[in-house]
Amino acid sequence: MNRSEPELLLQSAPLLREGLTIPTAMRDVIIALLPALLAGFWYFGISALLVVIASILGCVMTEWIFTDKQKRMIALSDGSAILTGLLLGMTLPPALPLWMAWIGGVVAIGLGKVIWGGLGGNLFNPAIVGRAFLLGTFPIAMTTWNLAKGGTDNFFNLYPSTFTAPFMQVAPTDAMSAATPLGLMKFEQVDTEIFSLMFGNTSGSLGETSGILLMVGGLYLLLRRALEWRIPLAIFISAGLFTLMLHTIDPARFPDIHFTLFSGGMMLGAIYMATDPVTSPLTTKGAWIFGSGVGVLIVLIRNFGGLPEGVLYAILFMNAATPLINRYTQPKVFGRRG
């Protein structure tokens, strides 16, 4: 290629373009999730991989069916359905029957996104809608947790419940189940050591257990400037302070800060789900309010509610409050009153 003479370029606005589009944003999040996801596969084996695939399949198929023929490829190629399926899959128990994971994906996109008019129109985070539906629909399967088996030797050992026939019950396997750190804390007042909590060698949702790796992904997103960092920070600060307060009052009953921050879906929810740009406030002030609300609700639900985990409902609740927050934190137009 030889250099041509500079020509007069005629172009309409916008003249400055940034590389940030929906597909690249989605790709960034998926890359950020990979370490924790791979750790989940390593801890829980091939069943975990299959659960994630089933959930993604459910999402993508639903998106494909309910989109206009002309827009199908565009809608799918932005990767948002894949990301929803991935996030949903990571919140599921590794031994969940595949048909349930698939239905979760269908509901996440069907009731969480398509019904609202597609990407950008939804009030609630689709992945959380899918998980909430599954939790309400199959409460036993969704709260049957398995020990992390760990290692390459066991990788191809399936959990027996993975291939349960569609619409059928899981054959009882009580011997293999193990309570999550949150369940232990809530029902038996047993603490889990910090090392296991941080690196994910505990029972729990397949992509939620490794707090450190999720934070590494968060750092990557921060470097790529693809993360509204105020929301997770606000969640950590408010949940931390609230826990500290409770822990000081009654150390025997309430867990301490590191437990609150590193157990359950805290990391995954705070960094990847609460920050979903569609369902979180637009303004920086709004982001702080949103995050603090989520943090306080998480601690409230975990310690005073009937369920051991509250990240899911805390985020759903604040999702619902987002339009209100947007309205009250709207910057004033310069020169206008009130």
Partner: peptide, 9 residues
């Protein structure tokens, strides 16, 4: 008897 009920319904 093996049907898994959709409790939420």
């Amino acid at each position: 008897p093996n049907f898994e009920p959709w409790v939420i319904m």
